[in-house]
Simulated assay, not measured.
Amino acid sequence: MLSYWAVKLLSHFVCLLPHRAAMMLGAGLARLLWPFIPARRKRLAQTQIEHCLHVSPAEAARIARESTLRFGPMLMEVLRFPVLRRHIEDYVTITGALHMMRASLAQGKGAIIATSHSGNWELMGGALALAGLPIVGVAKRQSTAGMDRFINEYRALVGMHVTYRSSVREMFRMIDQGWIIGLLSDQDPSRRDGVIVDFFGQETNAFTGAAAIARRCEVPIFPVFMHRRADGHHELTIEEPLYVEKTDDRAADVLRVTQDISAHIEAWIRRYPSEWFWLHDRWKSMREE
């Protein structure tokens, strides 16, 4: 558990800093670590950007670098959860269909959030929870027990309930109890767990969890995204809900809504391309197949 106490100590130090100084520290650390990112990963990100956005190699390289360097300030914000949670409105403004999300919950059942690795998604979950929404973060188990304990402890600190991807029955139960399940829907799953959709004009394997769970539980899906403004303040946008039409063809129902979710994610990435996680190998399973 050495890693846990090391990160806790770092968090304590970062919380003592003024917010601006902490963000500058994060940005500086990210720039220092950029040369150590494997060259093949940088090439992968640049190639994906060129194919998706049809920009020049120089512009693709710039976007790839910016999308990676943003992880420095993102890390500082997570480490500063003990401070940010006291006055979250100073750091995050929620816009869009918040009233529709609250109205949906008022009917006695939960909902699903479909989001992406754009902006600070950890801060997004915390901001929604601190706004009084019953948020369940669906987590990937970290490679070390110490880091897993730390990140889940800090998610709980800002009011989130945490479950793991394998706990599908728990998700069903919590939706029925009125909770909102947050799902990252933009990464490449196994072919067994995905369907083929159009994403940036390419055949892409997409995660079906949001559509499948929404169909089973008969709840709406809210696309939700984060954007960091130039002044460092975050805008959290809740888009109008998607609904899964339940027909006799389950596969077609899930595919149709998964395509809709992918279209919303693509539109947001096109709007803020340097805020998406381009280092992820989004088309790996398609190449292997």
Results as ranks from 00 to 15, higher is better:
residue 51 H to G: 09
residue 284 K to Q: 00
residue 65 R to S: 03
residue 99 H to L: 08
residue 55 V to A: 00
residue 203 E to I: 00
residue 174 M to G: 00
residue 36 F to T: 14
residue 4 Y to K: 11
residue 92 V to F: 14
residue 3 S to Y: 13
residue 22 A to I: 00
residue 155 R to S: 10
residue 268 W to M: 04
residue 219 V to P: 11
residue 153 E to W: 12
residue 205 N to W: 13
residue 36 F to S: 14
residue 175 I to C: 10
residue 288 E to P: 07
residue 104 S to K: 13
residue 172 F to V: 05
residue 16 L to W: 15
residue 269 I to R: 06
residue 26 G to F: 12
residue 77 E to H: 07
residue 69 L to E: 03
residue 21 A to G: 05
residue 73 P to T: 02
residue 9 L to W: 14
residue 16 L to V: 00
residue 81 F to C: 07
residue 92 V to G: 09
residue 4 Y to L: 05
residue 272 Y to H: 06
residue 43 R to H: 12
residue 50 E to W: 12
residue 186 D to T: 01
residue 140 K to V: 04
residue 207 F to M: 15
residue 244 V to I: 00
residue 277 F to C: 06
residue 237 T to D: 07
residue 195 V to E: 12
residue 250 R to A: 04
residue 28 G to Y: 09
residue 160 M to C: 08
residue 13 F to T: 06
residue 63 I to F: 13
residue 49 I to G: 05
residue 211 A to N: 09
residue 32 L to C: 15
residue 270 R to Q: 07
residue 166 S to G: 06
residue 269 I to M: 05
residue 47 T to F: 10
residue 128 L to C: 12
residue 92 V to Q: 11
residue 80 R to C: 01
residue 113 I to R: 05
residue 127 A to P: 01
residue 269 I to N: 11
residue 81 F to M: 13
residue 187 Q to E: 08
residue 13 F to L: 13
residue 229 R to G: 07
residue 66 E to R: 13
residue 126 G to L: 00
residue 213 I to P: 15
residue 26 G to M: 10
residue 81 F to S: 09
residue 236 L to R: 01
residue 159 G to M: 03
residue 34 W to V: 01
residue 205 N to F: 11
residue 34 W to F: 15
residue 116 S to I: 01
residue 103 A to Y: 12
residue 100 M to W: 10
residue 27 A to M: 05
residue 111 A to D: 05
residue 211 A to L: 02
residue 96 G to R: 13
residue 213 I to Q: 11
residue 203 E to H: 13
residue 114 A to L: 12
residue 77 E to P: 05
